[in-house]
Simulated scan of single mutants.
Amino acid sequence: MNALFNCISQYHPISIPAWEVLSEALTQVELPKNSFLVREGMVCNNLYFLERGCLRGYYNNQDGKEVTYWFGFENNFITSFYSFISRKPGIENIQVLEDSTLWGISFETLNQLFDQHHDLERLVRIINEQYYIRLEERLMAMQFKTARERYEQLLGTSPHILQRIPLGQIASYLGISQETLSRIRSQV
Rank of each mutant, 00 (worst) to 15 (best):
S106R: 02
I184H: 04
S80F: 07
M42D: 15
A3H: 12
L139P: 07
P159C: 03
N75S: 10
T79R: 03
G168D: 01
E108Y: 10
G72E: 03
F71R: 00
G168R: 02
E136I: 12
D119H: 06
T109V: 11
S158K: 10
L50Y: 02
D99I: 01
I161K: 00
E20A: 15
G175R: 01
N2L: 14
V96E: 05
C54P: 02
L154R: 03
L154I: 04
D119Y: 05
G57H: 02
T157Q: 10
E40T: 08
Q153N: 12
A3S: 14
Q169I: 00
Q169G: 00
E137A: 10
F5I: 15
S177N: 01
R87W: 13
F144Y: 12
G53W: 01
L50Q: 01
S83P: 07
N45S: 12
M1F: 13
Y59Q: 01
R183K: 06
Q130I: 09
Q28K: 14
R87A: 14
A18E: 09
L22V: 13
Y151R: 01
G57N: 06
F107A: 06
D119Q: 05
S158D: 09
N60G: 06
E98A: 03
N46V: 09
T79A: 11
L4I: 09
S15Y: 13
D115N: 14
I176Q: 00
S100Y: 01
T79C: 08
L37F: 08
L4Q: 09
S106L: 02
P17G: 14
G156S: 08
T109W: 05
E98P: 03
I16Y: 15
V67I: 08
Y48H: 10
I14S: 13
R39C: 13
R122T: 12
I91R: 15
R148M: 13
S83R: 07
G168T: 00
L135E: 11
S100L: 02
F73Y: 04
R52V: 12
C44F: 09
F5D: 14
R39L: 13
Q143C: 09
L22P: 13
F49A: 07
N93H: 14
R125S: 12
E121L: 09
L47E: 07
E51Q: 10
I8W: 12
L113S: 04
L155F: 04
C54Y: 01
E179D: 10
L55S: 01
F77R: 03
G175T: 02
S186A: 09
Y59T: 01
L120D: 05
I165D: 00
R56Q: 07
C54G: 03
R134V: 07
L102V: 03
M142L: 14
S83I: 06
N75V: 04
I16N: 15
I105N: 01
K88Y: 14
W103S: 02
P89A: 10
